[in-house]
């Protein structure tokens, strides 16, 4: 028996309209998933942080410009309290909680800088920091882990990275990490992403400063490790060509639904 009823299979199917995650969240999720596979645990900490966790525990000197009113938001009526300027404060909390290395931690979250708003500056943005501490964790391991991460994140095995000297008070040596330009692969002198250099600055990193381990009551003679940090908005802007950081916070569905 054959059923001769005509079905128009080209008419659109009836489907439940789906929403979408904000690109910041889905990017953080992607980063979390890659690092979780590499054995990292996700840690979280307060956005309002005391000065000790935000600066002292991270070896930021007493007179460092970052502590000035011009760069950091301070809370009224509560002594020595700031809106965190990085998620590095979580490192100390997580280490204090875990006590005994080895450990592998990432800390994604919202951070704040007292900066006037423009296309590339927001008073708030998101970071993901990472920390790995053990007996033998070396700078070569930092290179290994970051290479693995970046290749997965950009979905491209040909991605490579390079280390340059950098300076952050909480690491020694301090490293700036560049990744090969994912847009032109170093083949376009006019490239607007890498400005023709073939490299994009993407992460700050280094070997955890012994003072930082000491503040977390970890024996810096026995243990060592690396830390790194990246700006989420910056990653997204590079990956998708978003050109104005303010777009992230407008809440417009035509922005959110694209990713």
């Amino acid at each position: 028996m054959s059923d001769m009823t005509f079905i128009d299979v080209t008419a659109p199917g009836s489907r439940q309209k789906q929403g979408n995650l904000h690109i910041i969240s889905s990017t953080i999720r992607e980063i979390e998933d890659i690092f979780t596979r590499l054995g990292f645990e996700i840690a979280e900490g307060p956005e309002v942080e005391d000065e000790w966790h935000n600066f002292d525990a991270l070896n930021v000197p007493e007179n460092h410009p970052a502590r000035d009113m011009q760069d950091t938001f301070w809370i009224k009526g509560v002594d020595k309290t700031v809106l965190r300027t990085h998620t590095s404060g979580v490192q100390n909390r997580a280490m204090m909680e875990k006590k005994n290395p080895p450990f592998r931690i990432i800390a994604p979250g919202r951070v704040f800088r007292n900066e006037a708003l423009d296309a590339t500056h927001e008073a708030q943005f998101h970071q993901c920091e990472g920390l790995m501490v053990g007996k033998e964790i070396s700078l070569a391991n930092l290179k290994g882990v970051l290479l693995q991460f970046l290749q997965e994140f950009f979905g491209d095995d040909s991605v490579s990275l390079r280390f340059r000297p950098g300076y952050f008070p909480f690491v020694e040596p301090g490293i700036e990490v560049d990744v090969t330009c994912t847009k032109c692969h170093g083949e376009n002198k006019e490239c607007n992403v890498c400005k023709g250099s073939g490299w994009i600055e993407i992460l700050g990193a280094g070997m955890v400063h012994p003072h930082v381990l000491d503040s977390a009551e970890i024996n810096s003679k026995q243990f060592q490790g690396f830390a790194f940090g990246m700006g989420i908005e910056r990653l997204v802007m590079l990956k998708y060509g978003v050109d104005d950081i303010r777009d992230f916070y407008d809440g417009d569905i035509p922005f959110i639904e694209q990713f």
């Binding site: 439940q16 309209k17 789906q18 929403g19 979408n20 995650l21 904000h22 910041i24 969240s25 956005e47 809106l83 919202r110 704040f112 008073a123 708030q124 992230f248 916070y249 809440g251 569905i253 959110i256 639904e257």
Partner: peptide, 9 residues
């Protein structure tokens, strides 16, 4: 059908 937004702190 919900979209996630991020508003300012």
């Amino acid at each position: 059908g919900f979209y996630e937004v991020k508003n300012r702190t």
